[in-house]
Design a protein around this nucleic acid. Structure first.
Length: 793
DNA sequence: GCGTTCAATGTACCT
DNA sequence: ACAGGTACATTGAACGCG
């Protein structure tokens, strides 16, 4: 019979010699289905030495390893663009490709073995052009339901899935959860600390909490949660930070209580899989913490910051409870209610955030073919790589092995020195997707690179400026194909979106799709220069940046010829005097001469630069500020300093009055001296890049981290530490404390004045000859002259 | 012993 | 575990001085 289904997940089921692929999905009627593919064989390629007879080698291999090989077929493939003869070797046991390939690398006549490291589930998806999070149709025969799996129907696959055009996703059952453990000794540990609250919110809005009666027995809490998950049977389970903490905790805690955390659809416990994530058979485990790199604007990667950024649950305030306060809240029966509510609110935040983020994750999963529960945990490089693997499959390029490479730096983008001061009416000219378009324009690709010792190909070559790398002009390389496809698809999506009402489901799905496409497009250049890339060829990345420098430099010359003044430029942008006619001419000329498209991006009524690159503030036409690179944008400055700087910039750009700015700064300083500035605005956050003990210098955030550790809080590389500066004697780093342990009384107000507010303000006002000393003065005296702006322009 | 100088270290940002 | 270019604070050793 014909079966239509939406693919959620795929996993290999390996038992003995046979390999089954389990496809988990939802059919048109909403039934949860498991489709079992029993006829897909894992394979790899043995590339034959030049001058060897591939048929003969294939026969010899077949003879020598008949017990493990199903068949060995001679095929024509390409490797880095060069035709090769290869033997496609199908293995009897799916997990043995790596072992067999290793052996065959030593085989007479075999030059190299490739693609043995492609796991069978991904192999199936790639070879059959099947991607998760989409509808398919296939021939399948219903078979007897297994008691070992939690699905409505089980099928035996009789064909390869064929894509259906249906866009809407099925009704997915999502379950969001958040948990709190009780520990008096810092970070909770499953061997000693119970899980006291678990809160869940299901996709249909049903809220449920599992709460321990007291901290001595969390057995019922856990069991209640386990039973509920099994009964609810989610397609997607959503959390914030569970991959790093909760799953392991729940599993270990269950074991301690002689229970099994067997909640997945094969009635087993989740297992840790590749890319350091936790895999549930048949269920997509989505951890919103893995989305945080999509939002670099959110500096401290917490659930509440994410929710706030997304505009989720705006109206609640002051209900934050810090980890260190959990035991106090739990022990006090009155405050316990607040903790329980806090936990439920966390689950709600996860649930609502998930509704805003899942479409994007599904589109990305579908675009690169990584299953939904892998795609956000996979690093950017791997997402790009799987997308490229899909492309190369179509053109017969063999997938290189990942080889350990030595790091060799190369020159990147060109940054022009800004003209310091205030400028009126400035337009920013941006090259559209500069690196992707350069790679397309000059056919930069791993399979088009012509090494120095190689002869020039018939179609000729593009030779890179400065670095003189050569790339064949034709035929197109697979980067060109892939990037052209991505840019075209995004263009089409955006055209479609313009015809739609932005509140429709279709619009938001398309928006998610175009975001996914954009991310992969923009990451392709970085991928090319990444030493971990399978297709790492340094000249490809080096050529792209060299063409980039050539392009922007040529553009500056053209702009100057037109009589435009260049204020600043960085990599693919030029800040120019906004003279409409000349800009239109320039855009055209750039298109003609350089073969790349530019567009006017931001237009500023007024813009301010210091002497520093990558730092400026512009005033847009609608009077909004665009602040770039300055302290305002940084996560490692106290909020009070950032707000002061922002307001100073506003005064400078709008009123052009350094005097008013100085008065304002002094007002805030006075407030701080009276401790009227909120405590939270004094916290400084810094990332721990390694374990605290590994630092060679005594840095403040490291010292604060050590204090947290002493109290039992676990910290490691990647964690952010929030600290405040206290008064007292001794070196700076000995005067800091984690903010959760500090009181306002201890705060060294002078530090915040001298090292935060004043420098942040002086960064801007220094240009107007206002000194730090002047800023630090307490009051503005009647007699005092603050030079007016006009004295300096 | 104390203040100054400067390279090294560390973090975060921009495109 | 996508790239290189850049700014800046703080540390800590070297240095100069008396």
């Amino acid at each position: 019979m014909k079966l239509s289904f939406w693919l959620i997940d795929i996993n290999p089921k390996i038992g003995g010699a046979c390999c089954e692929l389990w496809l988990w999905g939802i059919d048109q009627s909403g039934s949860r289905v498991l489709i079992i593919e029993r006829n897909f064989n894992a394979y790899f390629y043995a590339v034959v030495e030049e001058g060897c007879d591939p048929s003969k080698t294939a026969a010899e291999i077949m003879n020598a390893y008949s017990s493990s090989i199903l068949n060995a077929e001679v095929v024509e493939r390409k490797f880095f663009g060069k035709p090769v003869q290869a033997i496609k070797i199908c293995c009897k046991v799916a997990t043995e490709t790596v072992k067999l390939a290793k052996t065959l690398r030593e085989f007479e006549g075999v030059k190299e073995c490739l693609e043995d490291d492609i796991r069978v589930a991904m192999r199936y998806l790639i070879d059959n052009d099947v991607a998760p999070c989409a509808w398919y149709e296939m021939e399948a025969e219903e078979e007897e339901k297994k008691s070992s799996v939690r699905v409505d129907k089980v099928y035996d696959a009789k064909s390869i899935p064929k894509p259906l055009s249906q866009v809407e996703k099925p009704q997915l059952k999502t379950l969001s959860f958040s948990m709190i453990s009780y520990s008096r000794e810092g970070s909770p540990k499953p061997d000693r600390n119970p899980v006291v609250i678990i809160s869940t919110v299901s996709g249909d809005g049903k809220e449920k909490q599992f709460i321990a009666d007291d901290e001595k027995n969390d057995g019922p809490t856990l069991q209640g949660f386990i039973d509920y998950v099994c009964q609810f049977d989610p397609d997607i389970i959503v959390s914030f930070g569970a991959n790093a903490k909760d799953w392991d905790y729940l599993i270990k805690r269950s074991h301690r209580l002689q229970r099994t955390f067997d909640v997945d659809r094969s009635k087993k416990e989740p297992h840790t899989s590749i890319y350091g994530h936790v895999s549930f058979t048949g269920i997509a485990n989505v951890d919103l913490a893995d989305f945080m790199d999509v939002f670099p604007e959110v500096k401290v990667k917490t659930l509440s910051n994410l929710a706030h950024y997304l505009g989720v649950m705006k109206n609640e305030s002051g209900s934050e409870i810090e980890d260190v306060e959990f035991p106090d809240y739990w022990e006090d029966l009155k405050k316990r209610e607040d903790l329980i509510k806090f936990s439920l609110n966390n689950a709600r935040k996860i649930h609502i955030s998930a509704t805003l983020l899942l479409d994007f994750a599904m589109q990305l999963s579908n675009l690169v073919s990584l299953p939904l529960d892998h795609v956000m945990t996979a690093a950017v490089g791997f997402r790009v790589e799987w997308f490229l693997i899909k492309q190369t499959r179509k053109i017969g390029e063999l997938i290189p092995r990942r080889i350990e490479q030595a790091y060799r730096p190369y020159a990147g983008g060109l940054v022009l020195s800004p003209k310091p001061g205030l400028h009126d009416n400035i337009a920013v000219l941006d090259f559209k997707s500069m690196y992707p378009n350069i790679m397309i324009r000059y056919n930069l690709s791993p399979d088009t690179y012509v090494a120095p010792e190689e002869p020039e190909p018939p179609a000729g070559v593009y030779e890179t400026p400065e670095v003189k790398h050569r790339f064949r002009k034709a035929p197109p390389g697979f980067y060109k194909e892939a990037l052209t496809y991505l840019i075209e698809v995004r263009g089409k999506i955006r055209v479609q979106m313009k015809k739609l009402n932005p509140t429709t489901v279709e619009y938001s799905v398309l928006d998610a799709r175009q975001k996914a496409v954009k991310i992969i497009t923009n990451a392709a250049y970085g991928y090319a220069g990444w030493i971990g890339a399978r297709w790492y060829i340094k000249p490809v990345a080096e050529a792209a940046s060299a063409w980039g420098r050539h392009t922007i430099l040529s553009a500056t010359h053209l702009a100057e010829k037109k009589g435009l003044t260049i204020i600043y430029g960085d990599t693919d942008s030029l800040f120019l005097t906004n003279e409409t006619e000349k800009l239109i001419e320039l855009k055209e000329k750039i298109g003609e001469d350089l073969g790349l498209e530019v567009e006017v991006g931001e237009v500023y009524k007024r813009i301010f630069f210091t002497e520093a690159k990558k730092r400026y503030a512009g005033l847009r036409d609608d009077d909004s500020l665009d602040i770039v690179g300055l302290e305002v944008m940084r996560g490692d400055w106290a909020q009070v300093a950032k707000e002061v700087q922002e307001h100073v910039l506003e005064i400078i750009l709008k009123e052009q009055s350094p005097k008013n700015a100085v008065i304002f700064v002094r007002k805030v300083i006075a407030e701080l001296k009276q401790r009227k500035i909120p405590f939270h605005d004094l916290i400084i956050w810094k990332t721990l890049t390694k374990a605290p003990e590994e630092y060679s210098i005594r840095a403040p955030h490291v010292e604060a981290a050590k204090m947290l550790k002493e109290k039992g809080w676990r910290l490691s590389g990647g964690d952010k530490v929030g600290y405040v500066v206290l008064s007292g004697k001794g070196r700076f780093h000995s005067r800091v404390k984690p903010y959760v342990f500090a009181t306002y009384e201890e705060i060294d107000v002078d530090y915040y004045i001298t090292n935060q507010i004043v420098p942040a303000a002086a960064r801007i006002l220094g240009f107007f000859k206002v000194t730090e000393k002047e800023l630090s003065r307490e009051e503005t005296k009647e007699s005092e002259e603050i030079k007016s702006l006009m004295d300096y322009v």
